[in-house]
Amino acid sequence: MRLRQTLVLLLLGAYTLFAAGPFVWVAMMSVRTTTEISRNHYAWPEQWHWHKFADAWFGSGYQVYFTNSTLVVCSAVALLTLVGAMAAYALARYRFRANRTIYFILFSTIIFPPQITVIALFQILVQYGLYNSLIGLTLVYVAIQLPLTIYLLETFFQRIPGELFDAARIDGYGELEVFWKIALPIALPALSTTVILNTILLWNEFLYAVVLITDESSRTLPLGIQRFMGDQQQDTGMIATGLMIAIVPVVLIYVFFSEKLIKGMTAGAMK
């Protein structure tokens, strides 16, 4: 028994090192200069250069990148939650002829890798004058995450007993009111899950951003970090600092909301 426990602990410890190791390394590099890093990649900081964060924020444009990322992600997640919830509710609760066809079409787009759709999206945004704009990027993010959002929420809405909605209709509420006052509050665990998932995914999104945004003032955080990666050389210290600025909000969301995330994933799985 003790041997088994020791083995399990060793395995878990090894995996923790494997998973957390790179993060700790980047964190250490974020407070070291590029010169110090070049001398010894893995050394503990001799001096803790906290000013690098201020330099990155004010001097290297991270304030702009962070603001852009926040605007785009918050707008996209808000739209995704609203539109996705309404679409999922309609597909889950209403019987109409094309219901399963629409659901299948939406769901099947999940299998397409982004490399297939990015060129077409580029052309569409150029055509509508939305290329190099935060609005264009927001709309693209909504489009790419909507199928997954609808899929997660549709399953949850299906499990809500229909009698709850019948009771609300008899109480005098119209279909939109039933959705707002009954369905959405009950679906809060699932909505929280989709909000958290979408925030994490879109915050780190790079491919669509790098293709659809070239203007310096419209860059999001992943693009801002890429600025420090040149063809001939790269500022490793500032890359690490930028990464930490980008990672911290995601880690905080996960630390505080992971329980909600898991609850939302399993909500309704058991009676």
């Binding site: 007993p161 009698e163 709850l164 019948d166 009771a167 609300a168 009954i182 009950i186």
Partner: peptide, 8 residues
């Protein structure tokens, strides 16, 4: 209703 249908 059979399941009471109370708003949770």
């Amino acid at each position: 209703f059979q399941s009471y249908a109370l708003y949770p």
